[in-house]
């Protein structure tokens, strides 16, 4: 499958799994009442939590590497 451009993983994640998320975001943006400030704030929270998870895993990895002898 290495020669394929569109791999199955991309279809599974971005074509299937993310469908509810696309619908949700569309609902936020198109649904009434229109209040883009609150939608932006929600995206802000999501961004902060994503960064927290990524940074948290990086810190965990570094912390463990200080304990393990290899």
């Amino acid at each position: 499958m290495a020669h394929e451009t569109l791999h199955i993983g991309l279809i599974v994640i971005f074509g299937i799994i993310m469908l509810p998320v696309y619908a949700m975001v569309a609902g936020w943006l198109l649904g009434k009442p229109h209040d883009y400030r609150t939608v932006a704030m929600t995206f802000g929270y999501i961004g902060v939590y994503v960064v927290a998870i990524v940074v948290g895993l990086a810190v965990l990895g570094v912390a463990i590497s200080l304990v393990v002898p290899y």
């Binding site: 509810p20 619908a23 949700m24 609902g27 649904g31 609150t38 704030m41």
Partner: peptide, 19 residues
């Protein structure tokens, strides 16, 4: 923001249930 937050929460709940 309360009304919009309720609407955002409803869509979040739908997405979470679908996931």
């Amino acid at each position: 923001e309360d009304e919009k937050v309720e609407q955002i929460l409803w869509w979040l709940a739908v997405a979470i249930l679908a996931l």
